[in-house]
Design a protein around this nucleic acid. Structure first.
Lengths: 232, 232
DNA sequence: CGACGATTTGAATAGGATCAATGGGAGTGG
DNA sequence: CCACTCCCATTGATCCTATTCAAATCGTCG
């Protein structure tokens, strides 16, 4: 596949500043593929053949142990996954499946490593991307260990409102089952958490949420930039 | 400070393969310092001036929110910390304090970034180190979300036994309060968890633990290489 | 000896999970 | 268009895990 012809790919921040030639070389034997929902893209324990990049749609990262399953993240464009496994050439620690019809770019691991040697700027971008992934997991862990379920939900709502128009009108992109997993609780519990938040001005109508009293909600949630602000 | 003269530092795997000159340049304006226990080395929210490397002793990574505190990791030699913040030049997400008298190498962030541009091999090592850190947090999160407190403790014991002689004689290096925090539970709960594990052949004598029935213990713990095996 | 902190134990509570049952669309096929 | 089915979401009841509060014990260090 040749990449320079597809602006959707060429303009991904990760590739900013790469030479066209270098870029095209890297995209050799890559795939840019559409998947329907619920397709498992990778499986934990497998060795990494490709770096994956979600260009459109949504991908869930999850893991199993003891017959239990947990959602570790839900990725939306543009996001890479399993970068660490690719760089280390070590088996995946997580599995991934599409949640929606998705468009995924897959670049052979070997090409990534070669491009990093060839192209300093790209290497730098990869390092930044990996550092961002790391900080994302650290944030998630802080949230899990320092907050109750209700607090996590409240902060989640505040965060996506701020990322959107900030007018208190919020739309959940994933179904509540997945959201529950992401927030580290059961669906039943999420339902009750929404119930608890009613007193703080959270109105639920299916996947449309309205925050009518952001002050009160923040009073409960106690948002913390070192957990919630993804831009730092 | 000059580094080539201190084998303890020169032989850190992270610096393997670096040119002496390059290495010495990097260690310019670095500090190799001893700290007593309970010294706070960095504070979350502060900008990163130095990459820190624990060469001797033990360092706890922890974080605050809502008046609550949680232990995120306990580092023992040789380990880096806050690497991601240094590479991104972004504020720390965690604080760090010494738990024991410790010897810490501190290298100016700027020097790290410069050395990465100058020295490919070093750059590669840094990337691997960062990827390892990432995978460490992912493992921790899987453990938290997929296991109960008792299971986490059981796996912890199995793991440190395997890392040691594997003869069932295990010594806890940290006090039980810290261990509890690390495992995501309260000290009271850890105490009860040890009580629960008695039936599985776990005998406790202060900080000396004996595992008399590894089979039973593993039956309960269900160890999983994708969580517990840090070498992959 | 006395004080202090760490650890353990007990009792009460809270937070979250599980099990069960119901309501509510969306999609399917007649 | 309607009946049917299926899955998601909600609600209730109950159970279990883990936290909190309180108290007792133990060991160490001055």
């Amino acid at each position: 596949m040749r990449g320079v012809e597809i602006p959707e790919i060429r303009n991904i921040p990760l590739f900013e500043g790469m030479e066209d030639e270098s870029f095209d070389l890297m995209l050799k034997s890559s795939y840019f593929q559409r998947f329907p929902p619920q397709v498992q893209l990778i499986t934990e324990g497998d060795p990494p053949d490709f770096l994956h990049i979600v260009v459109d749609g949504a991908v869930e990262l999850f893991a199993h142990s003891n017959n239990r399953e947990t959602t570790l993240a839900i990725l939306r464009p543009v996001a890479t996954f399993i970068l660490a496994a690719v760089l280390k050439d070590a088996v995946y620690l997580m599995s991934a499946r599409t949640l929606e019809p998705s468009h995924v770019l897959m670049i052979p691991s070997e090409n990534i490593r070669a491009a990093m040697v060839r192209d300093h700027r790209f290497s730098r971008q990869i390092v930044i991307e990996l550092a961002n992934c790391y900080r994302g997991v650290v944030r998630a862990q802080k949230s899990l260990k320092l907050r109750t379920g209700v607090e996590r939900l409240a902060n989640f709502l505040i965060r996506i409102d701020a990322r959107g128009a900030g007018d208190g009108k919020v739309r959940l992109l994933e179904d509540k089952k997945k959201l529950a997993g992401l927030l580290g609780m059961t669906p039943e519990n999420l339902s009750r958490a929404f119930g608890t938040l009613k007193k703080y001005g959270v109105e639920v109508d299916g996947n449309d949420i309205t925050l009518t009293n952001l002050e009160d909600l923040k009073g409960l949630a106690k948002p913390n930039p070192l957990i919630d602000d993804r831009s730092i």
